[in-house]
Amino acid sequence: MNFWLAVFRQAGRNLRQTWMSQLMTFLTVSLSVLIFAFFYLVYTNTIGASDKLSEEIRLIVYLNEEPGPEMQQQLIRKINNFDDTEEIRFVSKQEAYDRFAAQLGDDSDVLDGMPKDFLPASIEVVPLQTLRGFSEIKLFSEYLAKLPGSEKVQYGQEWMERFYYFTQLLTIVVLLSASLLILTATFMVSYTIRLTIMGRQDELELLKLVGATNSYIRTPFLLEGILQGLMGSLIGLSALYALFRWITLHFTDPGLLNMFHFNFLQPVIIAAIILTSIGLCTLGSFTSIQKFLKV
């Protein structure tokens, strides 16, 4: 019998003898992975949606009077002084009226009798892709509001602000769930291994007396940790995938979710979660071995 076969047999025995506590730990690790991976999935998809929406961002600066060609050039220079832009477009009062009338379609007759210059002239500014953070857009809008002739700046501020705070909240939740994963994986596994060691003191003592090496005694416990991490993360991620499939199947009708591409976790992230879970469980196992298994 070689070393690894002996060690696997020993690990199998450990699992059989303490299957109840092993099962509890395994379920706890699975649940922790599921909670973390779920919030991370929501987070990545929200960030994805946010990126997609930010491509549509444009700031509209309403002017109190229509600028002449000279003034337009001055305003363009002023705007570009803050940062380069993707596009700056002047919309005259007439153009604004025509757009509005086109938007009203068949109901455009409600505009009959209205003067053609009742809508204000404006500048539509599309910022660069690099300037898409909420705080940067806010600063830019404050700058635009101070331009000569500027009356008001609109860019869906309220919506953006809510979305920004939502993503901030999600970041906190993801960090908290990551902490939960770290705590449960490390401490639960550590605790279970500790229980196993305590419950098998006689056997471990005997193994030492009949000449078992340190690695023969310790490796099965490390294997248990690795197995807990591997199985816990696989089950947790599988449950999340099942949930993801259920959501995508039931919410694919035209609606809010269909506006975005709702993606599952990237393979590299899945691998990272599995490896991290294995690493944490092994760490938990290792600390218990160091502390309670003196050989």
Binding site: E203, L206, K208, L209, V210, G211, A212, T213, N214, Y216
Partner: peptide, 22 residues
Amino acid sequence: KGKKLAHLRQKIGVAYQDFKLL
């Protein structure tokens, strides 16, 4: 200590008075 002690113990068989059976 360690491996050397383990290997020596493998060459010593002991039948204890209290048996030390599992």
